[in-house]
Design a protein around this nucleic acid. Structure first.
Length: 842
RNA sequence: GCCGAAGUGGCGGAAUAGGCAGACGCGCACGACUCAAAAUCGUGUUCCCUCGGGAAUGAGGGUUCGAUUCCCUCCUUCGGCACCA
């Protein structure tokens, strides 16, 4: 397993250096030397432009898998490239170290999560070192370390003090397997079930008092992506997740002695067509307005809806259901008495939990009205169509037209625009406001971030409850509020072990000093990862979450890379968090990460997801032992488009391994074929070299790692040909070898360093400057131009690279083959694309 | 249902200010070396063919001298959201 792949040993003379390819040997050697020399230490240096390259930190599950390599080593190559370009690069790494698997291990093995977690970190750190990345380990941070979560707690308190963290009773999602509440972002739709994003278990609803962050305060700002270069897909996903909709709130009075009911609508222009009202079964006024005759059926429906709620009631295709409450509302625009129903297609969690139903112009309302025989009144008449008739319509009409049946608004134009851009909507909103029966409102699907978790292995929420003084933060001098080491029971009881701990929850009220109770919930681990990029700035700092001088130099993050699965979770949380800290005065700027790129996923060879249970996981350690880390890095970059990912191909790595070995041989074989020709013309070689340099520079910039490697492969093939042609010894040859190693260095840092040394160059190649493209050298002398007749290539002519259109045309027409095709006739048309092609039309 | 991304040889993928489709690599075939195999090196490899050529970038249409690239319609795959009022 551990033997070198190939031995290119020739008959050895004792003075000759060993030229056998032994990556395991030189990789270990350089790793040690780089660490001893602190080659990748990143410190403030105002003489250079800075570049903060960040890749999402891993959870310390205990084993580095190929996906980690895929997400870390290409960005590492790019960070190295940036460094050679003259940037002062910081490329830190750490661990998202709180989380449930540690508790699972605690339950299973009766071992404290801290011990399990930090043992895993130790193990993964070792594995990561083999990857040959330029991580600055002196900046490492682990979120489960008290010196880290001290500041996670401190940030919570800052949010609390600034009114951005609050506690409320709410209907929340609960994962019965993980035994904790979840934020809405962490609940996913799977088939027709809502499941826990972490474990896939269907969630249930619970009414609980929980801590929230006021993320919705930033809804509008989070919809703006000004000045940041993020993938459109992520921006779209966040935009859809927040889902802003413009409309109006309208107040309806209710028959009898009841409070008003407010509805939210995006179509106030259709108010005159509201022929009934629907409340969510959970709406607080349902009981009050239900008449005695309807009480039984309403209760029955509510019970059934509540039960369905636990399973899943949001199946779109489901037949509409509902019951009449017996109550009536007054439509404020025309004083019509309209029946109030309850139905589970109206959600308490959106808008006001009540809608005005306009069956003529809303499909759901239409289906409901038809099923229960409710009145349908059209109020928008499309042009060029028979007048709509509520009795005979077969579906709702949602398009443009003129308002009808709407008294003073009759004839008003309604288009398909949303909100104020629609003249009908805009006019009605103004009128509602004036009449004081409604007002313009913007509604969001986005909800505040539920931060409480009923778990042990997280940062304890630093709050204390006293009967008299209610909730108060733990005083700063008592931070961190550390998790207990002893007397913790590892039983899957469904309650936080902290709650069951004999003494942990006892505290003194920060206000009166009297007996008080600690919060026993911990924070969502996404809170920890919302600010880890700040902790990297100064992980040792014990008096502040980060140094301001470090912040001013390094922030914001220039390049952020990671998986797209975090689009509406971490990537949204961290933007919110940054904006909140900005308003509190802790950080500057509007966005934490300027450029974002998402890598794809490495799939198993059968195109399925890799998983331990399926046993189809590719183990990078084995590959490193067999081929060396450089080959694994290069193959990772080469085998698929980084942004797409794809299935692993275990045979494919042989090609990359061959290229690495051939590169080694090219540099170390001192008996080149071909005579050293003093008359060797290096122009072709230099042209290839500088064309490649230009391409690779561009490809690194654009995260196109696969073509970086293929360009290097091509250039190596050229180098072998040049060697045959007697290039060895020429200045072009020497230049080519040096530049080749510069370009190789980010991809295969170990071998590049080893070969650089063997060229007799000064240590270290990783401190060399990225070579300059010699533009003149990239230019061709002559070019071959295809000549098309009626779109088909018939011949190719060779002309000077700078030949004029006339010259090219003449050369094309002079071709014998072309003349043969023309059969003596004049072409109807001759198109010359200078430097590219000639197209003849006959 | 809505929104988005992607469809190129046996496979991963190159090539888009519209200009020689298939770079590079895997696989495969043949050859050299070898007693033999592996490794290595070399040659070939989109398909069809009557060897002159013809067809081809998911399908169909359009714009153009010319389309993988731009426009329209459709199909497939993947991802996101999902009774959002």
């Amino acid at each position: 397993m551990n033997k070198p792949i190939v031995s290119v040993k020739k008959e050895e003379s004792p003075v000759e250096k060993d030229t056998s390819f032994n990556p395991q040997g030189f990789e270990a050697k350089w790793q040690k030397k780089w660490e001893a020399d602190k080659l990748y230490r990143s410190v403030i240096d105002h003489s250079k432009p800075k570049h903060y390259a960040l890749t999402m930190l891993p959870y310390p599950s205990g084993d580095l898998h190929i996906g980690h390599w895929f997400s870390m080593t290409p960005p590492d190559a790019r960070a190295r490239f940036k460094r050679m370009q003259g940037y002062n690069v910081m490329f830190p790494m750490g661990f998202d170290a709180f989380g449930l698997p540690a508790e699972g291990a605690a339950i299973k093995n009766n071992i404290h999560p801290r011990i399990w977690t930090f043992a895993n970190i130790e193990r993964m750190r070792k594995q990561m070192r083999s990857m040959g990345t330029m991580f600055d380990w002196e900046r490492e941070a682990a979120s489960a370390d008290p010196s880290y979560y001290k500041w996670t707690q401190w940030f919570f308190i800052q949010l609390f003090k600034n009114g951005l963290a609050y506690r409320k009773m709410a209907t929340v999602d609960w994962c019965p397997k993980d035994n904790t509440t979840l934020a809405r972002e962490q609940v996913k739709q799977k088939g027709d079930e809502q499941v826990c994003d972490r474990c896939g278990t269907p969630v249930i609803k619970k009414n609980l008092e929980q801590w929230f962050f006021k993320a919705t305060k930033y809804a509008d700002e989070l919809l703006r992506f000004d000045g940041i270069d993020w993938p459109q897909t992520v921006k779209t996903m966040q935009t859809n997740w927040i889902e802003r909709s413009e409309g109006a709130e309208v107040h309806f009075t209710v028959d009898g002695d009841h409070p008003q009911i407010t509805v939210f609508t995006t179509r106030p222009d259709t108010l005159w067509g509201a022929t009934f009202m629907v409340l969510s079964p959970e709406h607080p006024l349902v009981n009050a307005i239900t008449t005695p005759e309807q009480k039984n059926s309403v209760e029955e429906y509510k019970a059934q809806a509540a039960k369905q709620n636990e399973i899943q009631r949001s199946n779109v295709d489901k037949e509409k259901t509902g019951v009449f409450t017996g109550g009536y509302a007054i439509n404020p625009v025309n004083q019509k008495r309209i029946p109030i129903w309850i139905a589970d297609y109206v959600m308490m969690s959106y808008g006001t939990g009540a809608i005005m139903a306009v069956p003529a112009h809303d499909e759901r309302d239409f289906a409901f009205a038809r099923k229960f025989g409710l009145k349908i009144t059209p109020v928008i008449q499309p042009a060029n169509m028979e007048p709509l008739n509520g009795e005979t319509m077969t579906g709702a009409y949602g398009g443009a037209g003129l308002m009808i049946n709407s008294v003073l608004f009759n004839g008003t134009v309604v288009n398909t625009e949303k909100g104020r851009k629609n003249p009908g909507i805009s006019k009605v909103i103004d009128w509602l406001t004036e009449k004081n029966i409604g007002k313009e409102t913007v509604n969001y699907k986005y909800r505040d971030w539920l931060i409480s978790r009923q778990r042990f292995w997280g940062a304890p929420i630093p709050m204390i409850y006293c009967e008299e003084h209610k909730w108060n933060p733990v005083p700063d001098d008592q931070l961190p509020m550390v998790l207990p080491e002893d007397d913790v029971e590892w039983k899957p009881t469904g309650e936080s072990p902290l709650k069951l701990h004999p003494t942990w929850k006892d505290a003194a009220c920060p206000v009166c000093g009297g007996a008080a109770t600690r919060e026993t919930d911990t924070m969502d681990t996404f809170m920890c990862s919302s600010w880890y990029h700040l902790r990297y700035l100064s992980p040792q700092n014990n008096s502040a979450p980060f140094d301001e001088t470090e912040y001013n130099y390094w922030m914001p993050v220039d390049t952020y890379t990671g998986g797209i699965e975090h689009a509406t979770m971490h990537l949204l949380y961290t933007r919110f968090f940054h904006k909140a800290l900005r308003d509190i005065g802790i950080v500057k700027g509007n966005e934490p990460m300027m450029q974002l790129r998402n890598q794809g996923m490495v799939l198993a060879e059968d195109h399925s997801k890799m998983s331990k249970s399926k046993g189809n996981v590719v183990a990078p350690d084995v590959l490193v032992q067999k081929y060396g880390a450089d080959t694994v890095r290069a193959y990772i970059m080469f085998f698929a488009r980084w942004e797409l990912g794809g299935p692993w191909d275990s045979k494919g790595i042989e090609g990359t391994a061959r290229w690495i070995r051939r590169t080694w041989t090219l540099f170390t074989d001192s008996s080149p074929a071909g005579e050293p020709a003093s008359a060797y013309d290096g122009r072709d070689l230099r042209r290839h070299l500088h064309q490649t340099l230009k391409r690779i520079t561009n490809d690194f910039e654009n995260f196109q790692f696969n073509t970086v490697v293929s360009s290097l492969m091509e250039l190596m093939n050229e180098l072998y040909k040049a060697r045959e042609a007697g290039a060895v010894g020429s200045t072009a040859w020497k230049e080519a070898l040096e530049i080749y190693l510069h370009m190789l260095a980010p991809v295969a840092p170990y071998m590049a360093e080893e070969l650089w040394m063997r060229l007799g160059k000064p240590y270290s190649i990783h401190q060399q400057s990225w070579p300059q493209v010699d533009e003149a050298a990239t230019k061709e002398d002559t070019i071959e131009i295809p000549v098309q007749i009626n779109g088909k290539v018939r011949d190719k002519v060779v002309v000077a690279a700078d030949a004029s259109e006339d010259e090219i045309r003449a050369a094309a027409l002079a071709s014998e083959i072309i003349q043969k095709y023309l059969e003596g006739k004049e072409p109807k048309k001759v198109i010359v694309a200078k430097g590219r092609l000639v197209s003849l039309v006959v």
